[in-house]
């Protein structure tokens, strides 16, 4: 690994001692529950994290771990009437947005925070040209004139690497390929220079070569814009490519949190270790893949004690009884496992 050490200089490891002014988003004790006829589903259960200016936080987990719901909570888009944020603060650039009304949130959404979704086809309106849809955001939030907005849109299209941007302004979504649509979505999300960009599985629906392009684009944008990015994904490969910090979620809780090098070199939680070991990459043909036994718990019938305990190979008797806390084990490295308490 020595030959790569020079490359990581620009990714100096920053711990928790992030200066206050650099904190773009701080989520503290966020709880989003769903109150259904069958019981309460703790989709997001006491989540806290911080994203700084110009950094990419990867939120990783499997389906149902609450990663998308965390994003929707930040956006103020928890689906009513069953879903509700029951506790927690969401502090965006010094302002708590968890307590804002829907009307106030509308001012923030698409302006200070914007989001890129997994499926670029369904998030664009098929009856308007993409140029018009991107311009709309600028006109609405930045009160630009039509001509100004068009100019700005053109500029954004160039920034996100859309070939022939002038021509593309008048294209309809169905005339574009999946990769181009995702670029349009990113352009739309970034046109108001948001403080925070949330990307929910932005490359999952795309082919590998297109995925590589979009990931490179996100990295380029991260250095050019001064935004914070939250990247939600299930793919540790994607995390390794672009993220600076990583939060691993399991069944609504954060199980491990550290910067990307710590996670890949020195992960502590058995679930994180399992996720990494389960990846077939670099495994020789013939070697057995590691697998995490069992499956994700039903959030309605969570096990007592540690939520990962039924599937954990390091579990001991106490894990069935006592729920672990998230403890700091190293500089900026948090883990929720009884092995590391105290």
């Amino acid at each position: 690994m020595a030959e790569y050490s020079a490359m990581i200089d620009d990714h100096t490891i920053r711990g928790t001692s992030t200066p206050e002014k650099d904190k773009m988003l701080e989520v503290k004790g966020l709880k989003t529950y769903f109150f259904t006829s069958k019981g309460v589903i703790p989709a997001v259960d006491d989540i806290s994290f911080t994203v700084s200016r110009g950094r990419i936080l990867g939120v990783v987990g499997e389906s149902g771990c609450g990663k998308s719901m965390t994003a929707l909570s930040i956006m103020g888009l928890v689906p009513p009437p069953t879903g509700k944020i029951v506790a927690g603060d969401i502090i965006l650039d010094g302002k708590n947005i968890a307590s804002l009304t829907e009307k106030e949130m509308c001012q923030i959404r698409g302006n200070e925070i914007s989001m890129v979704f997994q499926e670029p086809m369904t998030s664009l309106n098929p009856v308007y040209t993409v140029g018009k849809q991107v311009m709309e955001a600028a006109i609405l939030h930045q009160h630009l004139s039509k001509a100004q907005a068009k100019e700005k849109t053109l500029e954004m299209f160039k920034l996100v690497g859309i070939p022939e941007p002038k021509k593309r302004l008048d294209s309809y979504p169905h005339q574009l390929s999946g990769g181009l649509r995702q670029r349009v979505m990113i352009a739309m999300a970034l046109i108001c220079r948001p403080k925070l960009l949330i990307a929910d599985e932005p490359t999952t629906a795309l082919d590998v070569t297109v995925q590589a392009q979009i990931l490179q684009l996100m990295k380029k944008l991260q250095t050019e814009l001064d935004s914070a990015i939250v990247l939600i994904t299930h793919d540790m490969g994607v995390v390794a490519e672009v993220c600076d910090d990583v939060t691993i979620m399991y069944a609504g809780k954060i199980v491990e949190q550290a910067n990307v090098f710590e996670i890949f070199d020195n992960c502590l939680h058995p679930y994180t270790a399992g996720l990494l070991k389960a990846m077939p990459a670099f495994k020789e043909n013939g070697e057995r893949l590691y697998n995490i036994p069992g499956m994700l718990p039903n959030l309605l019938q969570l096990p007592k004690g540690c939520r990962f305990y039924p599937r954990c190979e390091c579990a001991s008797a106490i894990c069935a009884e006592q729920e672990p806390d998230l403890v700091e084990v190293g500089q900026g490295h948090f883990v929720r496992c009884l092995k590391y308490r105290g």
């Binding site: 499956m295 096990p303 305990y309 069935a320």
Partner: peptide, 9 residues
């Protein structure tokens, strides 16, 4: 632990 797996499954 086995039982817990089955319950969750």
């Amino acid at each position: 632990q086995q039982q817990a797996i089955e319950q969750s499954q």
